[in-house]
Amino acid sequence: MSQPAPHIVRRGSGRPLLLVHGLGVDHRFLLPLDDALEAAGGWERIYVDLPGFGGTPALEGEGGLPEFADWLDDVVADLVGEEPLAVLGTSIGGLLVRELVARRPEQVTGLALLAPVVDPDPDARDVPERTILEKDQALLAELDEEEAEPFLDLAVIQTRPVWEQFREHVLPGAQRVDEDALTRLQDGYALEGPLPEERFGTYDRPTLIVTGRQDDKVGFMDQLALAEHFPRLTLAMLDRAGHNVHLDQEQAVGAMVQNWAADAAREL
């Protein structure tokens, strides 16, 4: 069964760095990190749309998480072959890039995870209660109800600067989701076999994990428990940040991503 070619956006030049977004958005969600990655130097940033999101058509067949993992592995094979690469993933993209580490442990020279899914089963996650730290009531009163719904569900800082980031980098992808593909993915929202860490054991390359203290979607406790698998881990839990941690704390996350990318470049 043939599967869709990925829609990708390339920025810069150098060794490949693959960036993988999460559920319900597309590659534009991660573009706010591009200045930091460019400043690190030495990387061609490859932003990919997952199947059924953005510009990539949906998978044929079942279209669950195992099929997404196989598709992404094939994309890496087609784009970079056996060449070393670094990977960055957010939310479910954070699980998918860890799966790449399990499959390609010698090839992946750096791993960055932003608010990553640890266990696909929502009932197995340790998450805090929903908290909103700041609201701009005037802004909320003027928002279109349909556009505001995903913003209000995710944002813990509901102010104009955060909304403008959300409108630019989240809404365009959210409005292009293939709903059938999303349903099939949610119906098959589990990897086959053990989670990636149980297979690769220890990953001894530059690793970054950034979580939001107020992230009520995937939490922060499960991510802290990953530390034993990553001897070269930088781990940060940021206050005033929810699931869209790099939008809520753009400067802090950008600085950490830049440092991580520079460290990963030294591995080449």
Rank of each mutant, 00 (worst) to 15 (best):
G54H: 04
A155C: 07
L238F: 09
L226F: 01
F53R: 09
G89F: 01
A112P: 02
L268N: 11
L171T: 07
P84S: 12
V210A: 10
L208H: 04
S13K: 15
E267F: 02
P161K: 00
E62C: 09
E147V: 09
V257W: 06
A5C: 12
A252F: 00
R232K: 12
Q251S: 14
Q258E: 15
A227K: 03
F53T: 07
G63W: 11
V210C: 07
L185N: 13
H7C: 09
V108E: 00
V48F: 06
L79F: 10
R104P: 01
A40F: 10
V75P: 03
Q258T: 09
T90C: 11
G110C: 06
A174E: 11
L154V: 13
F220C: 14
A181Q: 11
D222C: 05
L88G: 02
D26M: 10
G219E: 03
L72A: 08
R45T: 10
A241R: 03
R11L: 13
D263Q: 15
D34P: 05
A148F: 08
T109W: 01
A5G: 15
Q3S: 14
R176G: 09
P105T: 00
Q223V: 09
E62G: 11
W163E: 02
G219M: 04
G188R: 03
V156H: 02
G254V: 11
A155T: 05
G41N: 07
D263I: 00
E106H: 10
L19N: 01
G94M: 05
A236D: 13
D144G: 10
E198P: 01
P206C: 03
L85N: 01
I209H: 05
R98H: 03
I132R: 13
H7V: 04
F230M: 03
L185Q: 10
L133S: 07
G63P: 11
V48N: 06
N259D: 14
R240G: 00
L238K: 07
L95E: 06
N244M: 12
D248I: 06
A155I: 09
A86G: 08
I157G: 05
E197M: 01
R205V: 02
A236R: 15
M256Y: 04
E83M: 12
E250M: 13
